[in-house]
Amino acid sequence: MIPFLALFAALGASVLSEAEAGTILPYSSAAACTDGPAYYAFELVSTKNIPGTGLATGTVEASVTAASPFSVHLSADGSYAYELHVTLDRMRVPGEGQLVAWVTTPDIDQIVRMSALDEHLQATGQVDWNKYIVVITLEPSDDPGQEIWTGPIVMRGMSRSGMMHTMVGHGALQQENCAAFGYGN
């Protein structure tokens, strides 16, 4: 075994005593390594506007690692280029129309159609925004050329990065009137 303590001292780092008061312990290794970008996954929540969707659940997995020779895939402006994978569950497929997945900005000033959901209630797509909202709507038909949704929103959810909008970052520190944008009171 390499004489680690000697190395550590030589490098000039400090050796901390274990389990002292005030120590914030690290994540336990009992939690095994996991595959997949689970951390950046987020939930879709039903609007309950469509019959058969009251108990529906949905998940969006978001990965920044595909299709790049580097460890992360970025767009031209440095935003993360996410590969999105939508999965819905516990819902009755509407008898008419087509469920379609969309991505929009928090300001809803840009909208990108991901794809229609398949028979397994899944859809995939890409987005290169750092904060975004995934919206599932019920459209009259599957029209890849459609630029904006027209049907009712079935489910929606915000990217995990939306959680940056915490009580620390929100409210008193926010210059805008957040209530005007639907946040808080």
Partner: peptide, 16 residues
């Protein structure tokens, strides 16, 4: 160096 930096206090990304 073209990145989207973070302002933690405002909970925002911004181009840098």
């Amino acid at each position: 160096n073209t990145v989207q930096a973070i302002n933690h206090f405002r909970g925002e990304f911004y181009p840098q």
